[in-house]
Write a protein that binds this DNA or RNA. Structure first.
Lengths: 208, 208
DNA sequence: ACGAAATAGCTCAAATCTGCGATAATTAGT
DNA sequence: ACTAATTATCGCAGATTTGAGCTATTTCGT
């Protein structure tokens, strides 16, 4: 395999190229509110991020940075947008591919979580990334019952309603929500008792 | 301004970095169908693309490549997704930021247009990029009257209906469409005559 | 047994949406 | 004037959605 050279006999690596970073908004629902995982760096706060390693995919870079910086493992990153302002980083020419990761709270319990409504003044363009991530997640949840599988394979309608309310950031009507969701779900044989009252039916996602 | 070095005293450019390309699906409506601009390279066809120049934004790279490769000027690129498979390009480690540009046919008349339903076997992952661009444009047009301003500032309802039908790739009901659109439009004082029959009212977008 | 709380879901009235037939107005051609 | 074509839109019936009141069932505690 001969290394490719162009018509000027130059390698691709002979040309100027930006450093490519990934920055990730890790969103979860905790205590009924939508939260984001942040990392501290000196006196400031930011989203977890890293530079892409040689021949590494962006998703692998995201997962590596979450593991290294926020003790988070095993998630499914979703690309949002490339932030490419040439002066966005004082260290040099850096572009960043913003990602969204949504995770159940239990799987990111070691991370520092902040309700998204309370986040202020993040580094770089991370405020923008967070805003984009939140609106993307909200759109996802408007379109589908639990696209990011935050609730696991089985769940009650109340759990699903609470999840959706937290993500939407507002209360949702119980019966209207139920009617919307039923078409996407199937009942299992199981019931899940609460503290008091009738046990709730357990559902799972209908086959695609 | 001292050049930044990290804790190992290395410059950012001392680390391996991918070449960053842009590839663009330029979509337009011509003769009632949704078309894409393609470029020929030897015996194959692809979307117009280029490598990002030093300290250049992605959007500027898109516009430069459209001007140089397809004689297209003055448009508004929209990011779709980064294609980052490490082996996607035989020449080396190249990631590509896929873009969508939607343009009136008149502004890209020098480009080679192909109806999107007839496109087959593009280079690299360009089939995927085109598919993503088409679905993105369709979603945009489902949500708004003319988000990409393909019709210019003023238009008749029939022009708008034809545009939407072409983008959707299917006929749309005339009166239902009208009722949906009216909330987003205001009438001008003008009328636009056809070949025969009553002149049509001319509309513009309602203020945001 | 009774009361309270939680789940499930039915019913209803009102609002909204959809597809389409019908009508009125406007233009060009004969 | 008449015919044909185009635009604009109203009204209608039927379908669908929405918000909420109400009832039945199930569980726990007294």
């Amino acid at each position: 395999m001969t290394t490719y050279r162009d018509t000027s006999h130059k390698l691709l690596t002979d040309y100027p190229r930006p450093s490519v970073a990934v920055d990730t908004a890790v969103l979860t629902v905790g205590d009924g509110v939508l939260c984001v995982a942040l990392v501290q760096k000196e006196k400031s706060r930011r989203l977890p991020g890293t530079f892409v390693h040689e021949r590494e995919t962006l998703a692998d870079a995201v997962l590596r940075s979450l593991h290294d910086k926020a003790h988070i493992m095993g998630l499914r990153p979703r690309q949002l947008q490339v932030f490419d302002a040439p002066n966005r980083d004082t260290r040099g020419w850096v572009i960043s591919v913003a990602h969204l990761v949504a995770a159940p709270q239990a799987s990111i319990s070691q991370a520092e979580l902040t309700p998204v409504s309370e986040v202020r003044d993040l580094d770089y363009d991370h405020d923008l990334i967070l805003k984009l991530a939140v609106s993307t997640l909200r759109a996802s949840y408007r379109a589908s019952a639990d696209p990011e599988h935050l609730l696991g394979p089985e769940f009650t309608l109340l759990e699903l309603l609470r999840l959706h309310s937290a993500i939407a950031g507002e209360p949702l009507g119980k019966d209207t929500f139920r009617r919307h969701m039923l078409g996407q779900l199937v009942e299992t044989d199981a019931y899940r008792p609460g503290l008091v009252g009738k046990p709730a039916k357990v559902f799972r996602h209908a086959a695609a």
